[in-house]
Design a protein around this nucleic acid. Structure first.
Lengths: 141, 141
DNA sequence: TAGTTGTCTAGTGAGTTGCTCAAGATTTCG
DNA sequence: CGAAATCTTGAGCAACTCACTAGACAACTA
């Protein structure tokens, strides 16, 4: 029941990028050094965030990465879903990636006792992470 | 960010055991069949739950497993922690298994921005799972 | 004491995580 | 233009975890 390093690194990288938001770009090695993240691994993360539309990048000598969306418009939930997949603790309660459980005897019945509890957990997690924005994050620094 | 099959199977096995609570014992193959769980895998789970003090077992011909605690006194949180480890999404916010992050640059500083958010998530999860008892579970069946 | 059950320890195949490496594309600067 | 700096892509890999299996052993009961 843990988040991956990918999510953690991704969030920490975004924190750095928030600080130069609107200003200069950051290169991967700058972010990597400041946040103690292996450069090549960080790269994969930054690219994923770019593909998801959070970052822009420029190649070449004065290249680097920069935030493309305002820190107020980026939530922890978004970032974690990009890097770690759905938030739901079991897939039969996921809203973004629902899957019927194959082996559960309750799957056929009208209601599964586990589903209710897990649904509540899912909602609680999503409620927090989808309302936490990067800006709120940076302020508490 | 998912619970393991172990937890899921464990909870479903406990549901079965709730139904015969106070009455007869259940053998592993009975539970396994009704809940579609591989017997030998289930066994490991039952043993873990036994070591944790939730179940009693008897060997031999009329052997089997039975609940040793009342369903009202067993919470989902307990069970999941036994089978899956701590609930915290990152270990620096775990109450049952705290660990300082080795590489995080905020670890040294008074406050880590990630920690606050993750702490809230941890509390939310624990709040739900530690108040959900097996009895509440069985009733909604 | 024979057969049935739980107990324990080890092992295994598939998949994931966290990370590395190498070759290429694009940009800037001299 | 050409060289250097940067991002881009894709492949690869060791360690670990997950879900499950196997087999020897201990205890209970008839």
């Amino acid at each position: 029941m843990k988040f991956s390093k990918k999510s953690e690194y991704g969030l920490r990288a975004l924190l750095e990028l928030c600080e130069t938001y609107g200003g200069r770009v950051l290169q991967r090695h700058e972010i990597a050094e400041r946040q103690n993240i292996p450069v090549e691994f960080l790269e994969q993360i930054l690219l994923a965030l770019k593909r998801a539309g959070l970052l822009a990048s420029r190649r070449g000598v004065r290249g680097g990465y920069s935030l493309i969306k305002s820190p107020e418009d980026i939530t922890l939930g978004q970032v974690i879903r990009i890097l770690d997949g759905p938030l739901a603790p079991i897939s039969c309660v996921s809203k973004t990636a629902y899957q019927k459980c194959a082996d559960c005897p309750y799957a056929a019945k009208p209601s599964c006792p586990l589903q209710q509890a897990m649904g509540e957990v899912r909602d609680a997690i999503a409620n927090i992470l989808d309302h936490y924005t990067l800006s709120r994050f940076a302020h508490s620094k």
